[in-house]
Nucleic acid binder design. Sequence first.
DNA 1: GCCAACGTTGGC
DNA 2: GCCAACGTTGGC
Length: 136
Amino acid sequence: MSAAYWLVKSEPAVFSWDDMVKAKTTDWSGVRNPGALINMKNMKKGDRVFFYHSNEGKCVVGIVEVAKTFYADPKDEKSGLVDVKAVEKLPNEVTLATIKTDPALKDMVLVKNSRLSVQPVTAAEWARVCKLGGVK
DNA sequence: GCCAACGTTGGC
DNA sequence: GCCAACGTTGGC
């Protein structure tokens, strides 16, 4: 499988983009949903991941990169971790409202299954969100 | 193994 | 704060 794209959600009140930047690299823990865990297991080092603010903001705010592939969580056998590192902030945040009204993005998992906390993103969707976000 | 009840998430 | 959608749990 070649490089893939993903999207992870975080509530900014708990762990915001600013926290991500400050941390530079962080372990993405606490995921219990089986579907989300499968997606995490499929992540490969170097894959790009959108960082999405749920609840407050409801927008894609930045891009992170997989720094370490899936490994078991020593504290929680039902869960696991990947490490991600901050790459860049989007010049323009791309809001959920924008995504919902964009014909190219209306099939995103974010729209169709908003509760899934780790989602796959297609190459076409990735390119479109980057364009809307002002990423070169 | 099915399904109803319950809990949680997240958009509004 | 409310409610809809989804996941999980537990009784059968």
